[in-house]
């Protein structure tokens, strides 16, 4: 059965065998940046941990799930049209939604929507391009919708169990991303790996996403709700 094969492959020699290691690298990179910035600077920002800690924690976890999927797609480079569209749409939507959601919860809808849209479109187009222009277009559309939708959802939830919703949304998003890993495995299990790479991209993407998120959450513009 394919799920059993996939689970087995998580310890195998293909790129799927590197997914857990990639998660660990991304987590370590992001938490190191957060820890260093907190120790040297944000410790002195009033209520930093109580106001932003929760959302930064989930942002780091989300990026740690998005980055391995990017690595898996880069390893195979080319995919069939339908699979590539699914890849562009899923990565664009989930990365945009989560980035927009976390920033929307701390800074308001405008900056959350803009950041979510930016992250969603960039990652969606990049990963969707594995099947050509259709995947890239899916990435743009999904990034646009996901980014603004994420920011809007968190602002609308401000007075109604925002933290609980954050946990639930993260769990569902994680399930979707793991399903995407599985789908890519199913689609590519007959093909050879096209690209071998070290973990430089993992660290770079985690670094850029985490730094941008922290910087915008602490110093970015805010809506009237967050005054």
């Amino acid at each position: 059965m394919s799920i059993k094969e996939f689970t087995k492959e998580l310890n195998g020699n293909r790129v799927e065998g590197e997914l857990i290691k990639t998660i660990l690298y991304s987590l370590v990179t992001s938490f190191l940046i957060l820890g260093i910035l907190y120790y040297f600077n944000f410790r002195n920002v009033a209520d930093f941990m109580s106001k932003y800690g929760f959302f930064l924690f989930f942002a780091v976890l989300s990026y740690a799930l998005i980055v391995p999927t990017i690595r898996q797609i880069r390893a195979y480079q080319n995919m069939a049209c339908m699979s590539g569209m699914m890849v562009g749409m899923t990565i664009g939507m989930i990365s945009g939604f989560l980035a927009g959601y976390f920033l929307g919860a701390t800074n308001g809808m405008f900056i959350g929507g803009v950041f979510g849209m930016f992250v969603g479109i960039v990652l969606g187009v990049w990963t969707g391009s594995c099947c050509g222009v259709m995947g890239s277009m899916e990435g743009i559309m999904a990034g646009l919708m996901g980014g603004w939708m994420g920011a809007m959802t968190s602002v609308m939830l401000l007075n109604d169990h925002l933290k609980l919703a954050t946990g639930l949304i993260f769990i569902v998003s994680a399930l979707i991303l793991v399903s995407l890993n599985y789908m890519i495995y199913i689609e590519t299990k007959e093909t050879e790996r096209q690209r071998r790479e070290d973990h430089f991209m993992t660290i770079l993407i985690s670094f850029i996403l985490t730094t941008l998120t922290i910087w915008l959450i602490v110093y970015g513009p805010r809506s009237a709700l967050f005054g």
Binding site: D47, M49, S50, K51, G53, F54, L56, F57, A105, L158, L162, K163, L225, F226, G227
Partner: peptide, 13 residues
């Protein structure tokens, strides 16, 4: 650590 430290309000207003 995050859950132990962060028990404040989300919105300042």
């Amino acid at each position: 650590f995050v859950f132990a430290e962060g028990k404040g309000e989300i919105n300042g207003k």
